[in-house]
Design a protein around this nucleic acid. Sequence first.
DNA 1: ATCTTAATTTAGAATTAGTCTAAAGTTATG
DNA 2: CATAACTTTAGACTAATTCTAAATTAAGAT
Lengths: 136, 136
Amino acid sequence: MRSCLTSEEIKTRLSLAGVNPTAQRIAICRFVLCDADHPTADDVKTWADKNFPMVSRATVYNTLNTLVQVKILKEVRVSHSNKVMYDSNTEHHYHFFDETSGKLIDIDPDRVEVKADLPKGFKMHEMEIVFKGKVK
Amino acid sequence: MRSCLTSEEIKTRLSLAGVNPTAQRIAICRFVLCDADHPTADDVKTWADKNFPMVSRATVYNTLNTLVQVKILKEVRVSHSNKVMYDSNTEHHYHFFDETSGKLIDIDPDRVEVKADLPKGFKMHEMEIVFKGKVK
DNA sequence: ATCTTAATTTAGAATTAGTCTAAAGTTATG
DNA sequence: CATAACTTTAGACTAATTCTAAATTAAGAT
Ligand SMILES: [Mn+2]
Ligand SMILES: [Mn+2]
Ligand SMILES: [Zn+2]
Ligand SMILES: [Zn+2]
C-alpha cells in the first residue's frame, strides 16, 4: 500500500522516534509501513518467516508494541475479530469493514461529518468509527 | 441497570427466541439483562460463582454465544481491551468509553448525526462509533 | 410412569493470542 | 579492545475462549 520507503528513510523514522534501527525492526517496518494493509501480528510473523527468517515471535510482538508506543503504528480492534490489527495510518481516520473480504479500508475523515450532542460532563477527545458493509 | 425483568418475562424472551429456558440460562439472562452493564464473560462467571454457583465456565460462554446468536445480546470489542463485552442493548446505539472508569456508556443515536460520503461501490449497513474521553 | 432420545451442562483439556524470562547476541561508548 | 547497555531469541507462561467427551436433565413416545 502507499509508496514504499527506502531503508534509509525507515532508519531515519525509527531514529527520530528514538528507536534503534536494527535489522529486524527495519524489516518489520518495511512490511507494515509499505506492503501490508492493517496486518495482524500473525500476518507479520508469517511474512517474516518467508522473507526475513531471522525474526522471532517475541521480536514481532516487541517491535509492534514499540512502534505503537512511538506512534509509528496504531492498534485497531474491531468486533468481528479477536486479533489486534496494526495500522500504518496514524493520522486520524475511520474504517470501512468489508464483510466480503474481511479487510479494513481507510476512510478519509474529510468524507465524514459527525455532530454529537454528548451528555453534560462528557469530554470527548477521540472518536472511532467503523462502517460495515460490502464493497463491490 | 434498566428495569428488571421477572423470571417469567425472561423465560418468554428465551422461548420466543427458540432457546430453552433452563435455570442456568435464566440466571445468566437476569444478570446480563437486568443487573450488569456491558459485562465480560468473566464478569458473568464471577457473578454466577457468588449468586448461582451451578454454572460452569463452559455454560457461561455457551450461553453468551447463544444469546448473541439469537440477538438478545450484542458483542462489543474495543481497542482498549482484549475481552468481549456483552451488550444488552441490541438497539442501534453508540458508546462512550470513559477512560477514567474503563466503562462503556450507551449513547443514544438520536444525539449523533453522521453524514458519510463513502466511496462509490461501498454499501454500508451498519456503523459502530466509540467516543473516547472522560466523564466528570 | 417408563423408556428412549435429544438437549444441556460440566470438568477439564486444548487452542489462540499475546507476554514474560533468562540466556545469548549485538551495538554503543570510553 | 573492554564494558555496559540494548536487542533478540526460544520457549515457558498467561489469559481468553473453545472444544471434548462424559454425566445430567428435559422431552417425547409408548
Ligand atoms: Mn498491544
Ligand atoms: Mn463470541
Ligand atoms: Zn486504517
Ligand atoms: Zn451499549
